[in-house]
Design a protein around this nucleic acid. Structure first.
Lengths: 282, 282
DNA sequence: TGAATAGTGTCTGTAAGACAGTATATG
DNA sequence: CATATACTGTCTTACAGACACTATTCA
């Protein structure tokens, strides 16, 4: 650290006025993760979008669902992205909960197909009743992950269908402002499917066009025309790459075998796959 | 503030382990603002996109350009958005620099047509050599503002054509990671022009189609076909609203008078106005 | 063989871009 | 009138959605 002169409180060039607790109101920095995956509903067997939630084990909002998250470990020089990966790994139990700095690294292989991006930062005073907390929210997409098992905490982590958390259907709602964060994350995810190849992050390394369509249907929450979808995705350059293989079997009750594809190199889709809805939404 | 039990360091439900300086590495929270406007270049007279910058008056990066920004005033319960507006108002001198909590409010009338949105959060360890700083970046769009005058600080604020800050043309570059933040802000602005009515935020309350086209050309940095642009923007429902008036005069060297429009109610454009570039960008 | 699933052909309406033309202002 | 600027017509190509059709596999 370089030593600098007098404070200049109006710009980043200032020294923190702080280190004097009487003049400095601390702000805690946390990360929260909206982790999305697609899994079958236990009852209907239909594929639906799920979000990872925990049960809070302490006040406030004790017993309520919340998004996984926690403090950024500034003392360990932890980056924001690292903190998000670490929290996700700990909550899903996908990495040994050995704690310490190895957490994020140990998770790397299992979470390798994970897509992670920053969603936004939520820092309204009062969003946490205890103190001033600024939370950097992340959005994570992953292929179907194993049932989450709580890390070391008392909190139990579970995949919950996003439809169950819909305001109105959910009597209690998520803790803090997490309902808002989730809503922002869902809108971001829905929009990104339109013009990026993100949907492939929800699928395995090889997938059929039908499986890809089910991803779009689960995230957008509406059925798509199978035939037109098929022709459209194959016409986008660089989106899908043919593996020249097919599934081993057709449908359970008959049906043609489906061709297998892997994600192509394109990250931006031209032309885009626009959502059918949002018409006359004036 | 509610009193809670023992710390549970893995989730937001924890008390800060801190207030004990030996166990707590503080993180400073700041806001930085990418403020964009469109003004004529002094020499050519052409309209170009400008960004607001200050000259740093203290180490590190003393004398270098930087984005305006500063600490969030946690002690005053300041919201992140408020902090961004306050910093912008102070740096542009658009509000009395009376300081204190009235800063943001006093700026409201003058900055009323301002569009402000969160851009992203930058918190990589080491981005500020002095201490750990997490900065929430904001993107602001405004019609041509008066020449910025430094607030109370020694720093001088100026509108700079973004082309001058292009890596390669700019020998020294912006301080900290502000070049990256600016690049992210520009890409966001360019993308948002495509599918939102944001361009009208750069224009006055009433404007011609040609003025609107100049906004798109300045932000995208490439010429557009005047005729096709004209027909296209008028075909988007809710984008433009006819005022049934025209400009007082035609062009300086002859030419028809242009019809005046104001921004319509639509915030999302259907169909979108896609950038001509980005073709075969595979 | 019948049903289920995968994939294709074709038609229609909408929209983008190229380009040329018309309308109305200034000097 | 020459010229500059605003605006419109029309043609071609591309793409989205509707719908019907063919292809292949399973029980």
């Amino acid at each position: 650290m370089t030593t600098v002169g007098p404070p200049d409180s109006e710009s980043e060039s200032a020294w923190l006025a702080a280190y004097d607790p009487t003049a400095f109101t601390p702000i805690a920095v946390t990360v929260d993760v909206v982790a999305l995956t697609i899994r079958r509903l236990p009852d209907s067997g239909a594929k639906a979008l799920h979000v990872l939630t925990i049960r809070r084990g302490a006040m406030p909002y004790e017993g309520r669902r919340a998004l996984p998250g926690g403090f950024v470990r500034a003392a360990e020089n932890e980056d924001l992205d690292q903190a998000a990966v670490r929290e996700l790994a700990e909550e899903t139990g996908l990495a040994a909960h050995g704690g310490g700095e190895s957490g994020a690294l140990a998770a790397a292989p299992l979470l390798s197909r994970l897509h992670l991006e920053q969603l936004g930062t939520y820092g309204t005073p009062g969003r946490d009743p205890r103190m001033r907390v600024v939370s950097v929210a992340y959005l994570a997409f992953a292929p179907d992950l194993p049932e989450a098992t709580a890390g070391g905490d008392a909190a139990a982590a579970h995949w919950v269908p996003v439809a169950e958390l819909d305001p109105g259907r959910d009597p209690e709602g998520l803790a803090f402002d997490h309902a808002r964060i989730l809503a922002d994350g869902l809108e971001r995810a829905r929009a990104k499917l339109e013009y990026t190849s993100l949907a492939t992050a929800f699928a395995g390394p090889e997938f059929t066009v039908t499986e890809l369509r089910e991803v779009y249907e689960a995230v957008w929450g509406e059925p798509l025309h199978a035939g037109n979808f098929h022709r459209k995705v194959l016409s986008v350059p660089g989106f899908l790459e043919d593996t020249d293989t097919t599934t081993a079997r057709g449908g359970a009750r008959g049906g043609r075998r489906a061709r297998l594809y892997r994600a192509g190199g394109a990250r931006l889709l031209h032309p885009a796959l626009l959502r059918p809805s949002r018409e006359e939404t004036l």
